[in-house]
Design a protein around this nucleic acid. Structure first.
Length: 577
RNA sequence: GUGCCUGUAGCUCAGCUGGAUAGAGCAACGGACUUCUAAUCCGUAGGCCGGGGGUUCGAAUCCCUCCAGGCACGCCA
C-alpha cells in the first residue's frame, strides 16, 4: 500500500535537517511511484520501506535510493528502466532536491540545491549549544549503569574504558532526548566484602605481629592499598582489635576501609569527568527486604529448584545453557541473586523504561542469565541492553603491561589521569567501538603532538577562538546568519565543511541507536580536518566585507559544533593552545 | 571441548539495515610558513577485507566451515 505524502521545507528547531531531507526524498519517490502506477507505466506493487542512503562518491549526489533495483522482480523491468520512469514522474516542488539521475545498475541519485547548506548555518547559529540535540527519546526514562567496580580496591584501566564509554553513552542519549540516570552499583555486600574483610584482618595482624605470624589468605586481595588502609588504621586506633574476635574485627575493619574506598572511587571518577546521579547500595537490597521479595516471587513462579543443598534459578527455562545458583548451600545468596533483585528494583520500583548495563568482556557470561532473569520477572528483556566492551591492553615502553586487581600490580585510574590527563584518556577510549579490543599506548597518549588525535581537534577549536578574538579586537563581531549573504560561501572547502556540520544531529541519532559514542570522536576529527583545510584555503580577516561576514558565520558555526561534540564527550575545548 | 568478541594498508582503527572505484589517522616519501595559531595544510605510495564455500541483480557486510588471537565456561563477581 502506498500513500501520497507531503514534504515541508525548513526544519523546526532541534530537528535533524538531514533526516528531513531524507524524508523529502522518500516522499518524492513514493509519489512518483503512485503517479507511475496510476498512469499504467508500472504495475501495482508493494513497497515496505524506501531506503535512502548517502553515496560515498560525491559525483553520485547527496542521497540515493536503490528502489528501482528492489522492485526489479515485482515490476519485471530492468532497474535502469524503472529508474527512468520514476524520475520522469518526480516532482521536486517545495523541496531541497534540484534533480535526480539514474546511475550505475539502477540507483537513483538526488542532487540538492545548495540552500540546504546555508539553512544549516542558520539552524546552527540559532540553536547554538542546543545544535545537534534531537528528540528520538521523547523523555523516555533510561538508566545507564556503568563501572560499578568492587569497592575492594582502586579502579583500573578496564574501569577507565567502561567509565568513558558509559558516561558518553549517557550523554549521547541525553542529547537524543532521553531522560538519563547515571548509576553506580556499589557491591557492598556478599562474598567479595567477606574477602575484603579477611584481607584487611590478615594485614592488620601481620602489621602488629609480624609478617610470619599469619599467612596471607590464598584468595585475598594482594594490593598495597589494603596494607595502607591498615597502617592508617593502626596509626589512628592502635592495636585495640588485636584481642577482639575475628568476626567483630573484620566487621570493624571493613566499616573503616570500605567508605574510604568508595570515596576514593567517587573522587577518581569525578576527576575523570563522571558524575553519577545515584550510588546504589547492594546491601540496601538485603536491608529493605527486596532480595527476599524477589526470591519469593521466583519461588512462587516455580522458577527455583533445589539441588546439592543449594537453590537454583531455572535459567534453562529461558533458553540459557544451565541453571544458576542463587542461594548457596551455606544459605548465603549469590551475587546473581541480588542482581536479580536489583533489576527488579530498576524496572518496577523505579519505573525505568530502558536499562543499559556496561560490562567488561570478562563478564559476558552474565548477559544471557541476566536477560533470562529479567524475563522471569515478567519484563520484556529487550528493555535491558548489556553493552559488552572488550578489555584493554596497556602498552608502555613498547611492551604489554598487564593489569590485575588481585596482584595489585596495575595502573590505576588515578595514575592514568595523572600521566595522560582526562581529555586524552576519554578521547582515546572513545575512538574505538566497544566491541573492539583496545590497545592503549601510554607513550602515545602522553605525547603532546600530532600523533595524539585529541590535540588535533582541540587545536582546531583554539584556532577558531584565536581568529575570533583577533577579529573582535578590531571591533567586528560575528554577524547573524539571517543578515548575511551566505551564498557567497561556495568554495569546495566551505561547502564540504558545512555539509559535515549538517551531519551532526544525524550522528547523534546513530550514536544513540547503536550505543556507540565512538562515532562522535571520528565525526569531530572530520570536522576539525575540514576546518583546517578551509583555513588553509580561505582567509577570513582582510577579505572583502561581505565574504568575511559569511565566513565568520561559518567559522562560528564550526566552533559551536566542535564545542558541542566535546561537551558530550566531557572533553575540554580550550580557547588557547 | 562449548559459547561470546575480534581478524580490513607497515601500525592503530572506520566501513550504518547488504550497494557503485574499500576509507581515515599514524609511520614513509615529496612539497607549502613575510599572510587570521605549521599541534596545520597539499600531494605520492601503500590492500587475496584471515582462508574456502554458499545466499543474489550486488557481499568487507548475511549464512556455513576452517584457521588465528582474546575472553568466559565457579555454590567468585
Amino acid at each position: 500500500m502506498i500513500f501520497a505524502c507531503q514534504s515541508g521545507r525548513l526544519g523546526n528547531p532541534m530537528t535533524n535537517l538531514i533526516e528531513n531531507i531524507r524524508g523529502q526524498v522518500r516522499c518524492i519517490v513514493n509519489n512518483a511511484l503512485i503517479s507511475a502506477i496510476e498512469k499504467g507505466e508500472l504495475p501495482d506493487c508493494e513497497v515496505n520501506e524506501i531506503a535512502v542512503e548517502t553515496p560515498k562518491e560525491k559525483e553520485h549526489g547527496e542521497f540515493s535510493t536503490n528502489i528501482a533495483m528492489q522492485l526489479a522482480k515485482q515490476v519485471r523491468k530492468a532497474p535502469v528502466k524503472t529508474a527512468a520512469i520514476l524520475i520522469a514522474n518526480m516532482d521536486f516542488t517545495n523541496t531541497y532536491i534540484s534533480r535526480a539521475e539514474s546511475a550505475g545498475p539502477g540507483f537513483i541519485n538526488f542532487y540538492l540545491n545548495s540552500s540546504w547548506l546555508y539553512d544549516t548555518l542558520e539552524i546552527i547559529s540559532r540553536e547554538r549549544e542546543d545544535y545537534g540535540k534531537i528528540n528520538i527519546g521523547h523523555g523516555k526514562k533510561v538508566m545507564v549503569e556503568f563501572v560499578s567496580a568492587n569497592p575492594t580496591g582502586p579502579l583500573h584501566m578496564g574501569n577507565a574504558r567502561g567509565g568513558a564509554l558509559g558516561d558518553c553513552i549517557a550523554s549521547v542519549l541525553n542529547a537524543a532526548g532521553y531522560d538519563v540516570t547515571r548509576e553506580f552499583y556499589v557491591n557492598d555486600a556478599g562474598n567479595q566484602i567477606e574477602r575484603f574483610g579477611i584481607s584487611l584482618e590478615a594485614r592488620y595482624l601481620q602489621l602488629l605481629k609480624g609478617t610470619d605470624a599469619i599467612a596471607f589468605p590464598e584468595d585475598g586481595y594482594q594490593g598495597e592499598d589494603i596494607i595502607d588502609h591498615m597502617k592508617n588504621y593502626i596509626e589512628q586506633y592502635g592495636d585495640k582489635l588485636l584481642e577482639a574476635d575475628s568476626e567483630k574485627r573484620r566487621k570493624e575493619l571493613v566499616s573503616y576501609a570500605l567508605p574510604k574506598n568508595i570515596e576514593r572511587i567517587r573522587k577518581g571518577l569525578e576527576a575523570y569527568g563522571i558524575k553519577y546521579d545515584v550510588w546504589f547500595s547492594e546491601q540496601s537490597l538485603y536491608d529493605s527486604g527486596e532480595l527476599e521479595e524477589t526470591l519469593k516471587f521466583l519461588r512462587d513462579k516455580d522458577l527455583v529448584t533445589e539441588m546439592d543443598g543449594a537453590q537454583w534459578f531455572k535459567a534453562t527455562e529461558f533458553g540459557v545453557e544451565k541453571d544458576e545458583v542463587i542461594i548457596r548451600n551455606n544459605g548465603l545468596p549469590t551475587y546473581f541473586a541480588s542482581d536479580i533483585a536489583y533489576h527488579r528494583n530498576k524496572f518496577y520500583k523505579r519505573g525505568f523504561d530502558w536499562v543499559i548495563n556496561l560490562l567488561g568482556a570478562d563478564h559476558h557470561g552474565h548477559v544471557a542469565r541476566m536477560k533470562a532473569a529479567v524475563s522471569a520477572l515478567g519484563i520484556d528483556s529487550s528493555k535491558l541492553d548489556i553493552v559488552i566492551f572488550q578489555l584493554v591492553r596497556l602498552f608502555k615502553n613498547g611492551e604489554v603491561a598487564r593489569m590485575s586487581k588481585r596482584t595489585g600490580r596495575s595502573i590505576s585510574l588515578d595514575d592514568l589521569l595523572e600521566e595522560v590527563g582526562r581529555d586524552a584518556a576519554r578521547f582515546i577510549f572513545n575512538t574505538k567501538a566497544s566491541g573492539s579490543h583496545l590497545d592503549f599506548d601510554l607513550d602515545l597518549a602522553v605525547k603532546q603532538s600530532n600523533e595524539n588525535p585529541v590535540y588535533y581537534v582541540q587545536y582546531a577549536h583554539a584556532r577558531i577562538c584565536s581568529m575570533l578574538r583577533l577579529i573582535e579586537s578590531e571591533g567586528i563581531s560575528v554577524p547573524g546568519a539571517e543578515d548575511t549573504d551566505l551564498s557567497l560561501l561556495n568554495a569546495p572547502e566551505e561547502m564540504e565543511l558545512i555539509r559535515k556540520l549538517a551531519e551532526f544531529p544525524d550522528e547523534i541519532r546513530i550514536s544513540a541507536q547503536t550505543l556507540e559514542p565512538s562515532r562522535l570522536t571520528r565525526y569531530v576529527t572530520d570536522v576539525a580536518s575540514l576546518f583546517h583545510s578551509f583555513y588553509n584555503a580561505c582567509r577570513v580577516k582582510g577579505e572583502e566585507e561581505s565574504i568575511m561576514k559569511a565566513r565568520l558565520v561559518l567559522v562560528s558555526a564550526t566552533q559551536i559544533v566542535i564545542k558541542n561534540v566535546l561537551s558530550i564527550l566531557s572533553i575540554s575545548a580550550p580557547e588557547r593552545m
